[in-house]
């Protein structure tokens, strides 16, 4: 049987970590796809639920518990919370301008969710919520739809002037307009795939390399390589959260910022 063959040989299942499982579900099956990982309804409590809940708890611990003393001279935990606040607040203000500051809570929500999802995903045996396009695509679509709607509400049909590059010669403006429109609609795709792809690739690579640790000769190299890649992934996790957020701010600027492009 195929299952037996896989279990006796070099068993590397880099994608198994991304499987969504029902919690509170017991199965006798050792196969990756069993009754706990299929027929999942939208309301089922799964590992997605659990790791998103953990993200909420971590955010609450950092931002609410850490600041409970409201000290003028901050404690360490309060400094972390203030650092995050200041970092995103400055980013929103610098990128979108003064007008964009009122969207700071939304941007902060996205940033903290992505950051916690990415970093918590690096814990061994954890589930990386942000490695799924089912998560990043709605996030990117929210930004896309929100920014487009906001742009039309703020500027009316004038929002479309964004696609008409007045700084270019008149002859090539229609061509540029087509390119601009295409690039505008590609935004949510790149926005979501970039995050999910980065997260998924890194975790899969770690898993594949770690799978070779069962070969005695190469295991020291494997341990070193996994450590190095883990460090890299930690960087990637933070950088991708930053990239996702700053792109959100850049898109937001088109809607609320100055008209010049």
């Amino acid at each position: 049987m195929e299952t037996e063959a896989e279990h006796t040989g070099l068993a590397i299942h880099p994608m198994d970590q991304f499987i969504v499982k029902k919690l509170f579900c017991h199965t006798e099956s050792t196969a990756p796809m069993n009754e706990c990982t299929t027929n999942i309804h939208w309301y089922d409590i799964t590992n997605v639920t659990m790791w998103m809940a953990i993200a909420v708890l971590v955010i609450a611990a950092i931002l609410v518990l850490g600041t409970r003393r409201r000290a003028i001279v901050p404690s360490r935990s309060q400094s972390v919370a203030e650092l995050l606040y200041g970092f995103i607040h400055n980013m929103v203000e610098e990128v979108t301008g003064h007008e964009g500051v009122k969207y700071f809570p939304y941007v902060m929500t996205l940033f903290l969710f992505v950051l916690c999802g990415n970093v918590l995903g690096l814990l061994p045996l954890s589930f990386t919520t942000t490695s799924h396009m089912a998560v990043t695509v709605p996030l990117a679509l929210m930004v896309f739809v929100g920014v487009t709607a906001l742009g039309f509400m703020k500027n009316g049909p004038g929002f479309l002037k964004m696609f008409w590059v007045t700084s270019a010669p008149l002859a090539i403006r229609p061509v540029l307009a087509v390119i601009e429109v295409i690039s505008y609609f590609v935004r949510p795709v790149s926005h979501s795939i970039r995050l999910a792809g980065n997260m998924m690739a890194g975790h899969a690579v770690i898993k594949v390399i770690a799978g070779f640790a069962s070969i005695v000769v190469v295991s020291p190299v494997v341990v070193g390589a996994v450590t190095a890649i883990y460090a890299l992934e930690l960087l990637v996790a933070v950088v991708q959260a930053y990239v996702f957020t700053i792109l959100t701010c850049v898109y937001l600027r088109d809607a609320v910022g100055d008209a010049h492009h």
């Binding site: 969504v20 998103m52 993200a55 919370a81 809570p105 929500t109 903290l112 919520t129």
Partner: peptide
């Protein structure tokens, strides 16, 4: 998997949003 993930994503985002706007951000 998508309906489940999208549903819990929305729940989580709403939870984080309220946590931030009601408590954390005004306080900080």
């Amino acid at each position: 998997y998508w309906p489940n993930q999208i549903f819990w994503l929305l729940v989580t985002l709403v939870a984080i949003y309220f946590l931030l706007t009601r408590v954390a951000l005004p306080r900080i």
